[in-house]
Design a binder for these strands. Structure first.
Length: 603
DNA sequence: GTTAGGG
DNA sequence: CCCTAAC
């Protein structure tokens, strides 16, 4: 029974995270998957997230776990968590020999890695069970940690063996055999991870023994893991194997996270790359595309915390912010030459990511899962990638982290390029539209905002108001390059990110914005918020038409009450008057319209 | 996806 | 600003 549930869950998770299964595999490196699932169940049963509608429980659980784990690794002692959670039981499950043998980098396995799972997911058997309401077994720690002796040594050995074996068996499949030599612990880790990736999700028809857990490398503690990751990055640079994390930053928390994500991403890339060479398995890397993620940026996090707070509470805050971000799930976007590639089925070659061709504009972005579609209109990775690609660079690799401090001072380099505040003066015309071409308005106000002085006397926001919200919501944008272009350090821009799952930051409307809103409503009426948005706030990504509607609502209210009762940045009476006027006018229009239609119906 | 309105 | 119902 449990196996079934596990399978279902696994399939579900896989389905949810698509091909980035690795992320989980890696993040849970030291844990038994059984543990993960058990915990998921636990959380589900506890209904912790049950109130979160629209989000699949399983999904939430998975991400919760992910976030939680990340957090625990950071907050808890070196060995505690990982060690205690090592789940030897996992190993007990049978391993499909085929899976064992297949090399993750082998096109076949890469290629097929998805199918089996899909099969599993499509399996009426699994789903029917799920639908039938099969309940997860009682949460017994039965077959996990408690029972099985946690023999790290054994596990370690097993792991090594797997690695070695894998290398031996698949030397030809290794992209860089040397890089994965027996002496490279890091490489081993990589390999084993891949192994898991390729093998775990595999489900062969009729193979009841399919399991996700075995062969999981066990990290003795977070520190080791961390170290290895770093080492790995260095090595990667050497071998052109993947990500390089060039910077060590302040919080280990962040660094850890960054490394992990970075690592995972590069992994995904690798996987895709290897899949691309399906046709000629014999050739080492002829048709492979090697991609290297130069750096990975942690999304911007907004943290407000009193100066008197303890460092511990700060850590916690950061953790929470990250958890919130991860909570909604991740989605990886790929953009070639600034153009987002939406067709996941397209091959790399078809997409223009092929060997021998220098790819200068390959970007990866991590974004909240649901966001990907939202901005179809004016969107595109363009904002995320292009615009800023020339603005910032390597240099700011540090930025994101630097900006995290609970200070009230906004990150400096982060957003300058688009910090303009609404400027009425800018539109000489009658329309106070805030749409300026280059200033997108979208970002949070910056202290240095050049446009700050216009009609609105005061800055429209306080320094605390870092913008975290950005429609693009892309958490990270990375410039990738072909290995060949290694020497060239691509620019990477920092785009603010919207902490997923977190309430949007409050951004009071500036007088200029109010002006623009009033003007637009005067023109369009009170029932066409989308038009109002497009007309006057098209470039203000953080203002949705709902926001505008809400603002109008409050404006009407504000205008209706005594000035003494008003709060916040005072809105010129003149504007308030216009608000009431427009409100009355359009209400009247609407009434007239309604009468007309009624009349029509009667006749 | 938009609107409208309550929270 | 969020959430939802309703369209």
């Amino acid at each position: 029974m449990f196996a079934l549930v596990q399978k279902v869950l696994l399939c579900r998770i896989w389905e949810l995270i698509g091909g980035y299964w690795v992320i989980f595999q890696n993040l849970f490196g030291g844990f038994g998957f059984n543990d993960l699932l058990l915990n998921c169940h636990h959380q589900c049963l506890n209904g912790k997230r049950s109130s979160r509608k629209k989000i699949e429980l399983n999904e939430m659980c998975a991400f919760d776990m992910l976030a939680t784990l990340a957090g625990k690794l950071l907050t808890e002692g070196e060995n505690s968590l990982l060690l205690s959670n090592t789940n030897p039981t996992a190993v007990k499950e049978t391993v499909n020999p085929e899976v064992m043998k297949s090399h993750p980098l082998d096109q076949d396995s890469c290629n097929e890695s998805e199918t089996p799972l899909k099969e599993a997911m499509d399996s009426p058997d699994l789903y029917s069970q799920m639908e039938l309401g099969v309940k997860p077994p009682p949460l017994v720690s039965s077959d996990s940690s408690t029972e099985m002796p946690s023999d790290r040594e054994n596990i370690k050995i097993a792991w090594t063996e797997v690695v070695d074996r894998e290398c031996e068996d698949n030397s030809s499949a290794c992209t860089h055999p040397k890089a994965f030599g027996p002496h490279s612990k890091v490489s081993k880790k990589v390999l084993s991870t891949k192994h898991r990736k390729a093998g775990s999700p595999r489900v062969h028809k009729g193979d009841k023994n399919y399991s996700v857990c075995e062969m999981k490398p066990t990290f003795r503690n977070s520190s080791l893991f961390y170290t290895r990751q770093r080492t790995q990055f260095k090595r990667k640079k050497q071998f052109g194997q993947g990500s390089i994390f060039t910077r060590e930053v302040t919080g280990e928390i962040l660094l850890w996270e960054v490394n992990v994500v970075c690592f995972l991403i590069s992994f995904s890339v690798k996987r895709e790359a290897s899949a691309a060479k399906i046709q000629k398995p014999m050739h080492e890397s002829k048709d492979k595309v090697k991609l290297c993620i130069k750096s990975f940026q942690i999304p911007e996090l907004l943290i407000e915390i009193p100066e008197t707070a303890t460092v511990g509470s700060l850590k916690k805050k950061v953790l929470e912010a990250m958890a919130a971000m991860l909570g909604d799930g991740l989605h990886v976007g790929v953009a070639v030459h600034g153009k987002k590639v939406k067709d996941d089925t397209a091959t790399l070659v078809q997409t223009g990511i092929n060997h021998g061709k220098k790819i200068e504009n390959l970007d990866f972005s991590i974004e909240p899962k649901f966001v990907s579609e939202s901005k179809k209109t004016n969107n595109s990775s363009q904002n995320v990638v292009q615009e800023d690609s020339h603005v910032t660079d390597l240099g700011d690799l540090t930025e994101p982290l630097a900006s995290i401090p609970p200070t009230t001072s906004p990150p400096e380099n982060q957003v300058s390029y688009q910090e303009l505040t609404p400027n009425l003066v800018q539109s000489p015309v009658q329309s106070p539209s805030l749409n300026c071409h280059e200033s997108d308005y979208d970002s949070a106000p910056s202290p240095n905002s050049p446009a700050e002085n216009m009609s609105s006397p005061e800055k429209n926001s306080n320094p605390k108001d870092l913008d975290t919200g950005d429609e693009s919501k892309a958490m990270v944008v990375h410039r990738m390059e072909m290995e060949e272009a290694f020497a060239v350090v691509p620019a990477r821009k920092t785009k603010r990110v919207e902490p997923v799952g977190q309430r949007r930051i409050r951004r009071p409307f500036s007088v200029a914005e109010v002006e623009a809103l009033v003007h637009a409503v005067e023109k369009l009426g009170t029932g066409r918020w989308r038009d109002v948005k497009i007309r006057a706030f098209d470039n203000a990504k953080h203002r949705t038409y709902v926001d505008l509607k809400d603002k109008w609502k409050t404006l009407v209210h504000t205008a209706s009450i005594a000035p003494q009762q008003r709060r916040g940045e005072p809105v010129p009476q003149e504007l308030l008057d216009r608000v009431l006027q427009a409100q009355a006018y359009w209400a009247h229009q609407q009434a007239k319209l309604q009468l007309k239609s009624e009349a029509c119906l009667l006749t």
